[in-house]
């Protein structure tokens, strides 16, 4: 027994597929198979670029009124028509998109910031720590998000930022639960025990093994939460509790155009379409990411 490598054909030196040196290469290969997610990503890139370049793309000043040309249908000098004060709907939609997307990002940011660390701690520590964190989370989850947001806005004054922070707090338990669940599953994996048996400290185990493996579901959840935050913003703005005139978000544009649904449907249809498509895109992207980020199982053999 002096040779290390066995000599038959099933030895440890059997050929492997060509190398795929980085996690990114692996992700790109798998993401290429997700057509809906790619379309969604393309759409989101266009939307984000559009609202970011709003000053360049806008055909008119979004705030300038033209009372001689109210409720003009799409076409002519105004691509998407004008609203009840004669403002250009296309230009307003571009600027409103900024408000809507930033609002969604605020809510998601707050939710991630408040959710991830407690989730990690609850999942890894378990026992009493877990119980305390989860009961607080349960209490938070029992609030209806919109009603609480409305109450806070009522107290703090109508401000979209306030409203979205509240929405973020309400969404945080989703992240606590998700991260906790993922961490509990990861904690039972043999590679955690293997790492402990080597003598690795707890902080290093969490940083090296737990966090990277909990990342994929987190990214997926961020995408899905962004969609929900968009809808929450639209709902609040529709109720007049979000952004204040003369600024607009997609939700508040629908609210303002609602009164003219019969005579000037373009006031509600276009922002509504933008909201619907963006929410759909976030959801499709989330699904695609889930399928390309998760653990890959060796197929065949």
């Amino acid at each position: 027994m002096t040779t290390t490598a066995p000599t038959d054909g099933l030895d440890g030196r059997e050929a492997l597929a060509p190398p795929e040196p980085t996690a990114r290469a692996r992700f790109v290969r798998r993401f290429r198979r997700q057509l809906p997610a790619q379309l969604a990503l393309g759409y989101l890139v266009v939307v984000v670029a559009g609202v970011a370049l709003a000053p360049l793309l806008a055909t008119h000043d979004p705030l300038v009124q033209n009372l001689n040309g109210v409720l003009q249908p799409p076409g002519g000098g105004h691509v998407l028509g004008t609203d009840d004060l004669g403002r250009d709907v296309f230009s307003r939609a571009l600027y409103a998109g900024r408000v809507s997307l930033v609002a969604a990002a605020e809510a998601v940011g707050v939710a991630v910031l408040l959710g991830v660390v407690p989730g990690l701690v609850a999942g890894y520590a378990g026992k009493a720590v877990d119980a305390v964190i989860m009961r607080v989370t349960d209490a938070l989850m029992s609030f209806p998000p919109l009603i609480l947001a409305i109450a806070f806005v009522g107290v703090l004054g109508p401000s979209l930022t306030n409203a979205m922070i509240v929405i973020g707090v309400i969404f945080a338990p989703r992240f606590v639960r998700l991260v906790r669940g993922t961490v509990i599953a990861i904690r039972e994996e043999t590679y955690i025990e293997a790492s402990r048996s080597i003598g690795t400290g707890t902080a290093t185990v969490i940083r090296r093994h737990v966090l990277p493996n909990a990342l994929s579901p987190l990214i997926v959840q961020i995408s899905l939460t962004a969609a929900m935050a968009m809808l929450a913003e639209a709902s609040l703005s529709f109720l007049g509790l979000g952004v204040q005139p003369p600024d607009a978000s997609w939700g508040s544009m629908i609210e303002r155009g609602f009164r003219y649904t019969a005579s000037a449907p373009w006031l509600t249809v276009f922002p509504g379409l933008l909201i619907a498509l963006t929410v759909l895109a976030f959801n499709l992207l989330g699904d695609g990411l889930r399928d390309s980020l998760g653990r890959e199982i060796r197929r065949g053999s």
Binding site: A23, E189, T190, Y191, E193, A194, S195, S197, I198, G199, T200, G201, T204, R208, H209, P212, N213, L215, R295, E296
Partner: peptide, 27 residues
């Protein structure tokens, strides 16, 4: 040191195997 039963879960899927092998050296 220990060698575990399940070779499919004893290596961290998120890191290249060289990193897993180097872990005791790092520690």
């Amino acid at each position: 040191q220990m060698v575990f039963q399940d070779p499919y879960s004893s290596l961290d899927p998120s890191m290249v195997v060289g990193e897993s092998i180097a872990e005791p050296l790092d520690t």
